[in-house]
Design a protein around this nucleic acid. Structure first.
Length: 773
RNA sequence: GCCCGGGUGGCGGAAUCGGUAUACGCGCUCGACUUAAGAUCGAGUUCCGUAAGGAAUGUGAGUUCGAGUCUCACCCCGGGCACCA
């Protein structure tokens, strides 16, 4: 037979899988399993080795589960709307649709070259009208259910490029990443999702999913639930009250001043009555012009101004206390006002020192009792804010809203969906949303709804497209629903979800929010979309730094596939280290797995080379076989894929089973190929075909053959290893100790002192403790 | 600053209900094959020591017959959050 030619073998099997639609899953699953990758943004630079890591892991898991008889839904699609394609269009004039479709074609071809077992009949792209019709439908559904609202919000405004910027596009010094202009805050009407309605469920239901603990903690921190009291403070000579939120009502006796956020509703009225009106108003104006980032910078040096002539009354001590306005208090959290306790709170302390305010030492009381005493109520608060979904961008799903002549917003009715993204738009920053240029969009609106009606010209945050795609995979071609209830019932929730750790907060939070909302609407019946979640670790460049185009240290998976083959790349990426760990690339190490596959190839070729038939059956080798089957299965189950590769290497290594005398060589070879198949499917399929092995089913192991008749036991004297002896697995303590004592080396050490005690751990270790003599 | 995760050979990493540390691979050394190189195959490879033996899992203590694994303190690296009252 010819030498191992990875190109020939891999092309052959990829074509065969494609032609036979081998991974197309049944529509009526008997044992369902839904294994999902976070679908990629099809960037122009193509597939990255990081993608390969995650996709290979889910592929191994899917193939393994299919061999166990599961109907595995394992789909792939494209998170195709987004900024890079639009920025590229601004630079070159090439329409984002063209760039995106080209990139998708590249990605698909690259993925197929890896031999990944996706059901391509379910492929979706979020930028297609067939898909975004349902993104828009869901927006309308949420709108009708009262989970969408519009309000004025402060956004980052770039006065040079005349555009709104995302927070990530503003540099820490408050200038725009692109234009270098000083970014200002501008109030614009924006659409929001009421994600805060689900804050409690988003925290509580984390208890029921199998996710990395750190990811759960990130989510909890982001939601930032805290419990405390809302307490009203009276104002001297006024009926007005200031309501504060505090987690420490027990410190109220130490509240020697109050602070209002500059945005607080009472500020204006207080300024009118104050003795320093202009000072107050200019402080508020200055705060308003600061970006969030600039306000955070003030952390080390707090600013503020007292409202002179207006005092509050501490409800516990009944003392009159001053009121300040300071931007270290945030308008959007709690009540936008605090009782400041400088003796107890670091930030208040810093402020009080700077402004010479009384710092009063206090005795602590019981928090809930104190709350009751001062007429407060016990409440929960969240740092989570509603989700702003308007984007002043072109390459996204148009928000399906039109405005009547009075400017009132109306949802576009279902029969008009998809509300098409217009194409008569130039990709130049003009100061308003690009859709505002489209004559077609305006004419369409007037034609359908009437003269004077205007379309919404913002698009939806692309995170919305990815918040529901896992439902669509259950029923990707449905033209009447985003997915039928039956299909979702059949396939969801996702059993295993794998993707990068960079999405621990936003995407996962939004997808969970959608799930909870749809459950509330009565469309689905489960709480959580992703039962088990794992993150692949970042793959670093050979020099241990992050891969980056500018450093020229990016590894292109295509080149690796070309040179070593997809099976080698798959095996190598799994062998690198623990799945979730960050690990450096090392081209030398690929040679190791490539050599392993070549050895496998040769061993199958040469009947003499591998586990020759032998009349005598060594029990312990048979045991090793069963142990290997068990360990490989368990490790795949737990995505401990690096040790799976180790096990397989050991299996054929010259120190391992290759020299074994196992009763049936063919039987062992068949088992080995079946174990190899999920990891390196091309070569395993080829060898199975050539030599006529059946590897469709995952091999079973025999519990009774997992332990062998004799086991090595370590013998220690005072904790130091002095011998290793072979004992019957079921030997009694007395006999075991006796055997150990007769070992020459052990005896030598035992002679050095008086034996105090002996510890016997069956199958593991014997430890003699001897006293000094 | 706070919250997570992690420090094991020359390198990537195994091993955590406490029980033979360094599996598997890379690299390296020696040998076989070869005119030679490469590939392949075989032997070896934590450190010190000719050996007997000793030491070692970031550092220092502790618990234990026995600690990479448990406890305490500290150092370093990586990630996330960062005025949330």
């Amino acid at each position: 037979m010819a030498a191992y030619d990875h190109k020939k073998v891999e092309q052959k099997w990829q074509k065969r899988w494609e032609d036979s639609q081998a991974f197309r899953v049944s529509d009526s699953p008997k044992k369902k399993l839904y294994v999902l990758d976070m679908f990629p943004y099809p960037s122009g630079s193509g597939l990255h080795v990081g993608h390969v890591e995650g996709y290979t892991a889910t592929d191994i898991y899917s193939r393994y589960k299919r061999m166990q008889g599961f109907d595995v839904l394992h789909p792939m699609g494209w998170d195709a709307f987004g900024l890079p394609a639009e920025n590229y269009a601004v630079k070159t004039g090439v329409p984002p649709a063209k760039t995106t479709n080209d990139a998708i074609n590249t990605f698909r071809a690259q993925i197929k070259r890896l031999g990944l077992s996706y059901d391509w009949s379910r492929e979706i792209g979020t930028h297609t009208p067939e898909y975004y019709k349902w993104t828009q439908w869901l927006f309308v559904k949420f709108f009708n259910e009262g989970l969408v609202y519009k309000k004025k919000a402060l956004v980052n405004w770039d006065p040079v490029d005349q555009t709104v910027l995302a927070n990530e596009q503003v540099l820490p010094d408050g200038t725009a990443e692109r234009s270098g202009a000083k970014v200002v805050q501008k109030e614009l009407e924006q659409w929001f999702f009421k994600i805060t309605d689900f804050a409690d469920a988003l925290v509580d239901d984390l208890d029921e999913v199998d996710w990395p603990e750190s990811t759960k903690i990130n989510q909890r921190n982001w939601i930032g639930r805290s419990e405390g009291a809302e307490i009203e403070f009276d104002i001297s000579n006024s009926k007005e009250k200031i309501k504060v939120f505090t987690t420490r009502p027990d410190t109220i006796f130490g509240a020697t001043y109050m602070v209002l956020a500059p945005e607080h509703a009472l500020v204006e009225g207080f300024a009118e009555r104050s003795e320093n009106k202009s000072e107050i108003l200019s402080y508020v104006e200055a705060a308003r012009n600061k970006t969030d980032l600039e306000r955070q910078e003030g952390q080390k040096d707090k600013t503020g101004v007292e409202i002179q002539g207006v005092k509050a009354i501490n409800p516990a001590s009944k003392e009159e206390i001053p009121i300040y306005i300071a931007d270290y208090v945030l308008g959007h959290y709690g009540t936008g006002a605090i009782m400041a306790v400088p003796a107890h709170d670091e930030r208040d302390h810093e402020f009080a020192e700077k402004f010479n305010i009384l710092i009063k030492e206090i005795e602590l009381k019981d928090p809930k009792e104190m709350t009751k005493k001062v007429g407060g109520t016990w409440v929960k608060n969240y740092r989570l804010r509603d989700w702003l979904i308007s984007r002043q961008r072109y390459w996204g799903a148009p928000i399906p809203i039109v405005y009547d002549r009075e400017g009132k917003a109306h949802a576009i009715p279902e029969e008009q969906l998809p509300w098409m993204l217009p194409t008569d738009v130039e990709f130049k920053p003009t100061g308003t949303s690009p859709l505002g240029q489209s004559k077609e969009l305006l004419e369409r609106t007037e034609k359908i709804f009437g003269k004077g009606w205007k379309p919404e010209i913002d698009t939806l945050d692309t995170f919305m497209c990815s918040s529901w795609y896992f439902f669509r995979f259950a029923d990707p071609h449905n033209e009447r629903e985003f997915a039928s209830k039956e299909a979702m019932q059949k396939w969801l929730p996702v059993d295993l979800y794998v993707g990068g750790a960079e999405h621990t907060v936003l995407h996962l939070m939004y997808a969970r929010f959608f799930t909870k909302a749809l459950k509330k609407f009565g469309i689905i019946t489960f709480n959580e979309p992703f039962l088990k979640l794992r993150h692949q670790g970042t793959i670093l460049a050979e020099d241990g730094t992050k891969m980056s185009k500018s450093k020229g240290n990016v590894i292109n998976p295509d080149e690796v596939v070309e040179r070593y083959g997809a099976d080698s790349l798959r095996l190598y990426e799994m062998f690198m280290g623990p799945f979730e760990a960050m690990k450096p690339w090392n081209t030398q190490n690929i040679l190791g797995v490539r050599r392993f596959l070549e050895r496998v190839w040769t061993i199958f070729e040469n009947e003499q080379g591998f586990m020759q038939d032998s009349p005598s059956v060594e029990k312990s080798q048979e045991t090793a076989l069963h142990q290997t089957i068990k360990k490989v299965g368990e490790d795949i189950e737990n995505l401990k894929l690096n040790t799976v590769v180790s096990e397989l290497m050991k299996f054929i290594s010259h120190n391992g089973l290759q020299r074994a005398n196992v009763e049936d060589t063919r039987r062992v070879r068949e088992i080995f190929l079946a174990l190899l198949f999920p990891l390196a499917p091309h070569i395993a399929s080829e060898l199975a075909e050539i030599y006529n092995y059946k590897i469709a089913h995952w091999p079973a192991y025999d519990n009774s053959r997992l332990t062998s008749a004799t086991v090595p036991v370590a013998v220690q004297v005072n904790g130091k290893l002095r011998a290793t002896i072979e004992l019957a697995a079921d030997v009694g303590e007395g006999e075991a100790l006796q055997a150990a004592r007769t070992d020459a080396n052990v005896a030598k050490w035992l002679a050095l002192g008086k034996e105090v005690r002996a510890v016997y751990v069956p199958g593991k270790v014997i430890n003699f403790v001897i006293g000094q003599s």
